[in-house]
Design a protein around this nucleic acid. Sequence first.
DNA 1: GTCTATACCAAGATAGAC
DNA 2: GTCTATCTTGGTATAGAC
Lengths: 201, 201
Amino acid sequence: MNKAKPVERELSSKKTALILEGAMQEFLEHGYAGARIDRIVEAAGVSKATVYRHFPDKEALFTALIQQMSCRKNIFEFQSQQSFEESPSVFLKRYASAMLENVAEDPQILTFLRIIIGESGRFPELARAFVVNLEKVSLDFLTQYLTKHPQLQIADPEVTARAFIGTLIHFVMIRDVLQSGDLVPIERDRLLDGLIDLIVR
Amino acid sequence: MNKAKPVERELSSKKTALILEGAMQEFLEHGYAGARIDRIVEAAGVSKATVYRHFPDKEALFTALIQQMSCRKNIFEFQSQQSFEESPSVFLKRYASAMLENVAEDPQILTFLRIIIGESGRFPELARAFVVNLEKVSLDFLTQYLTKHPQLQIADPEVTARAFIGTLIHFVMIRDVLQSGDLVPIERDRLLDGLIDLIVR
DNA sequence: GTCTATACCAAGATAGAC
DNA sequence: GTCTATCTTGGTATAGAC
């Protein structure tokens, strides 16, 4: 009557975490089709059969992993420290800088972007989760910020938020994801300050 | 003394073209690791041995194909019809519309973008060829256009060109590549006109 | 629930006839 | 130069012992 049932549950989820951790490096590095269960098994330190006891197949493991990552690898993560004296141009500079620092601090964000986009044809639901969890949140946040500062005289905050985020993402794409910053060089601060000038004037 | 040697050469390159054509659908649809030589062979209507007589291995076939496509699938293709009466805002609208129409007319551009980005970690040279042939060309073109119209009072044409292209690419990424336009909806013309207002004022 | 060992199949690449 | 047939490897997934 006093059997320790919950303990088994916990062991099980510990293995699940190990598997997902091992799967992360493998899928991020090799993509979906290029990923090898053998390497995931090795990295996780479990047996192959254990993987298939926790996940029905390779595809389920992949989608579970990416959905989990969509909540953790947030390129737009930002401490909105509500310093009210802060001028909009300073705020926008901080916001953009935070995003670029997130990318610099965690290069896994780059491989995450590569796989989301690369597999978006075969796994559209994962792409859509990415857009809802990351893109939409930051677009809405920026739109609201611009709307709440009418002194900026922003004609269409939604469009302006798009231009701001779009320019930043495009910059990261060229420089970091495609590793071609040297081919179309531009200084970080020149782009950021010029972009903010375009918006705040 | 009158042997028809050139004929063989031509047959050979005909096969090469067939193989590349078959490889295109296969690589674009399934990515590098997911592509199957068997399916390329079937689509091209040649034997597997013929493929390996023309290309050393799968990787060489892939890089040859993508390099060829970087010259043909130009998302920024645009008839610069030099109508001098055309105002900058009309010109910019035409330029942006042309890009969006290129995407709409040839959905292979989308799968091409997916594979370039998705494989940019393993094939950085292909990503760099893409940036040089497509991104850089259009960035330079737009920068020059903005510079040649000083009445626009563009503070930093290079940055403005980045913002313009970046906003467009980002829009295409969300809507078409990631198939998530409905999640962060915005009307095409509202974005384009708003973006141009941001630049030309 | 987890492991070892294995079934089963499909992939990339090649040998040898023509 | 091109084909058919085949080799070899390595993949996903599972069976059966513990």
